[in-house]
């Protein structure tokens, strides 16, 4: 049954997401819009086949919720932290600097999510990742204690991401 479904509709989750997006954009759930949205989503799902994405396995929905909540809180706190640095005056960014972190995660999707998390929370910026050595180059606005930032990234985000994606 599942095999037949994937033969007709290659990426069912993508299909549903595209359909939801279409309905959101049109602000309606009338049958016509659902039909039209399904057509568009069908095309989108099939064009994804040509891209041949790596199959992704998501596990541990509870870890996902924990991660989302942590990111939500951190966006708030880091916004305030960066606002304070900006208001501190001309010399506010005296502690800014680059640092490197050694990552254990290898999953591409996990790294993508980590890059979004780190760049979306103001104060940390993902600059470069070298996959052969697994080193991540970061720019941090408030680099007082490098150890603490390393611990934050590895324990607060990376461990959960590895649970979800690996």
């Amino acid at each position: 049954m599942n095999r037949i479904l994937t033969r007709i509709l290659p990426h069912p989750k993508l299909f549903l997401a595209l359909l939801a997006m279409w309905l959101l954009m049109n602000q309606s759930v009338s049958p016509g819009q659902i039909l039209f949205g399904a057509l568009v989503a069908f095309g989108g799902a099939w064009s994804m086949v040509a891209l041949q994405p790596e199959p992704v396995r998501l596990r541990r929905p509870r870890a996902m919720i924990t991660l989302a909540w942590r990111v939500f809180l951190d966006v708030f706190s880091s916004n305030f932290a960066v606002a304070r640095i900006i208001l501190r005056g001309r010399d506010g960014d005296r502690n800014a600097g680059f640092m490197t972190v050694q990552l254990d995660m290898t999953s591409h999707y996990g790294l993508a999510v980590l890059s979004i998390i780190l760049t979306c929370t103001p104060g940390t910026l993902w600059v470069n990742y070298t996959s052969s050595t697994g080193t991540l180059l970061l720019h941090v606005l408030d680099l007082v204690d490098e150890e603490e930032w390393t611990r934050l990234i590895k324990e607060r985000y990376e461990r959960l991401l590895m649970e979800i994606f690996e």
């Binding site: 960066v82 900006i86 005056g89 506010g92 800014a96 680059f98 929370t121 103001p122 720019h139 606005l141």
Partner: peptide, 25 residues
Amino acid sequence: LGSLGLVRLRSFYSRVHAPSLGATL
């Protein structure tokens, strides 16, 4: 505040952090 940071922070790499304030919160 984020855009103010764009004017006030001194090095380019510090300034890159500033727009993400307006784009998130």
